[in-house]
């Protein structure tokens, strides 16, 4: 990576905890940066997601003092997420919409600096390409980020800022040569993505199709896909009754488990695998587009990678 950026990141590490994709054995994982030289700039898709930084797997909701509920007073550490690729930025933009009124998310978000990065496209992105993207500038306008570093083929790169916070930090870090991009909302001027609308239509009418019966016999409902999905934001609330510190915990939920649709009395809506998996796809490709006009799947391909029985989302979509 460029010297200028190295210096900038070094300076950043004085104030922030840096998180970035790093080589971890055979895979690339997002974890805390010990040495800035370890950061992976290849643009390959990391195995785990960024959502853990904004929505931790377990998060305490409130404390109880004198029999009253008090919002937990935990100071959020300042975090800089470095090297978030375009696909993951898209997922974060969706989370931003969904949790726009969530205190816990917003608190974390305020203390986080998002630094996007692209080295052309992530390598295997084309394989998973579901939604059509065109020129980078067109895309950046509709993504949420503080700073974006775009690397072009011959060591040439361009730096963008996407927020006041980003501008401020860039100036402080001694980088003067950047372009500001104002966030223009998540939907492009041409209207919602056409491919998304097409998929929505297909998915709506696909209930009872053969593909869901086929998956009924393959899927083991381990829920790994939903846990490792950057846009899966459903959660469970769990109460613990420890007398010294009773607490309510918000943890990642998954529609593949019976607890997800369990109601008092023991009834559950999603009682077969085919219903569960259809529900998952339906949420991603019909309900999220309906509510937010954004695709619920950003096409990162993580679910295909972690599936132990080898269900591939792109093949399922083709069959739908």
């Amino acid at each position: 990576m460029n010297n200028e950026i190295q210096v900038f990141l070094n300076k950043l590490s004085e104030e922030f905890f840096l998180f970035a994709p790093q080589q971890d054995g055979a895979v690339i994982n997002i974890k805390e940066v010990r040495d800035i030289g370890d950061v992976d700039w290849s643009g390959r898709m990391p195995t785990n997601t960024w959502k853990a930084l904004f929505l931790p797997a377990r998060e305490k909701m409130f404390d109880i003092s004198d029999g009253r509920l008090v919002k937990s007073k935990t100071s959020q550490p300042k975090i800089a997420a470095i090297g978030v690729n375009v696909v993951d930025l898209k997922a974060l933009t969706l989370l931003e919409l969904v949790f726009s009124r969530d205190v816990y998310y917003q608190e974390r978000r305020c203390n986080t600096l998002i630094i996007g990065y692209s080295s052309s496209w992530p390598n295997d992105y084309k394989k998973y390409k579901i939604f059509s993207h065109n020129f980078e500038e067109d895309i950046l306008e509709h993504l949420i980020f503080d700073i974006f570093i775009a690397q072009f083929a011959v060591g040439r790169m361009k730096i963008y800022s996407g927020s006041e916070k980003g501008q401020h930090i860039l100036e402080e870090g001694g980088i003067k040569d950047y372009e500001h991009i104002e966030f223009a909302g998540p939907i492009s001027e041409k209207g919602p993505d056409k491919k998304m609308l097409l998929l929505k239509k297909k998915m709506e009418s696909s209930q009872g199709k053969r593909i869901w019966h086929e998956l009924n016999k393959i899927c083991i409902a381990c829920g790994k896909c939903s846990i490792n999905c950057p846009t899966c934001f459903c959660f469970d609330l769990e109460d613990s009754v420890d007398p010294d510190n009773p607490e309510r915990v918000r943890k990642w939920g998954s529609c593949f488990y019976n607890d997800f649709s369990l109601v008092a009395g023991g009834g559950k809506e999603l009682d077969t695998v085919s219903k569960k998996i259809f529900f998952w796809y339906y949420h991603k490709f019909v309900r999220i587009p309906f509510e937010y006009m954004m695709p619920g799947c950003v096409g990162c391909g993580r679910c295909s990678k972690v599936c132990p029985v080898g269900i591939k989302i792109e093949e399922v979509l083709k069959k739908v």
Binding site: N29, A57, C222, G223, S254, D259
Partner: peptide, 26 residues
Amino acid sequence: KKGSFRIPQNPVCYECQSRGYQCLLQ
């Protein structure tokens, strides 16, 4: 407290994946 308890019905995969451990099945 309430005379009963219930363990959340999640598989080990939930614990494993949300902590980012490597999948041995794969």
